[in-house]
Amino acid sequence: MVVPAILFILIFSYIPMYGTLMAFQDYNIFKGFWESPWVGFKHFEMFFHSPDFWLVMRNTVVISLLKLLIGFPAPILLALMLNEVRKMAFKRIVQTISYLPHFMSWVIVAGFTMSMLSTDNGSINILLQKVNLIDEPVNWLSTTEYFWGILISANVWKEIGFASIIYLAAISGVNPDMYEAASIDGAGKLKQMYLITIPAIMPVVIIFLILAIGNLLSAGFEDILLLATNPALREVSDVLDTYVYRVGIKSSRFSYATAVGLYKAIISIGLLTAANLIARRTGNSLW
Rank of each mutant, 00 (worst) to 15 (best):
L69Y: 08
G71M: 08
F72E: 06
P73T: 05
P75D: 08
P75N: 04
I76Y: 07
I76F: 08
L77F: 15
L77N: 03
L78A: 05
L78N: 02
L80I: 02
L80A: 04
L80Q: 09
L82K: 01
L82W: 02
N83Y: 10
R86V: 08
M88I: 15
A89E: 14
F90W: 12
K91E: 07
K91W: 05
K91M: 05
R92D: 09
I93W: 10
I93G: 04
I93D: 03
V94L: 15
Q95N: 11
I97F: 12
Y99R: 06
Y99D: 01
L100R: 01
P101G: 06
P101A: 05
P101D: 10
H102R: 11
F103Q: 10
M104K: 06
S105C: 03
W106Q: 08
V107W: 06
V109S: 10
V109T: 09
V109N: 09
A110N: 04
G111N: 04
G111W: 00
G111V: 00
F112S: 14
T113I: 15
T113F: 05
M114E: 01
S115F: 02
S115W: 01
M116C: 10
S118L: 06
S118M: 05
S118T: 08
T119S: 10
N121L: 14
G122I: 02
G122P: 12
S123E: 02
S123K: 05
S123Y: 06
N125T: 05
N125M: 02
I126A: 12
I126T: 14
L127P: 00
L127G: 00
L128C: 04
L128D: 05
N132C: 03
L133F: 12
I134S: 07
I134T: 04
D135V: 02
E136W: 01
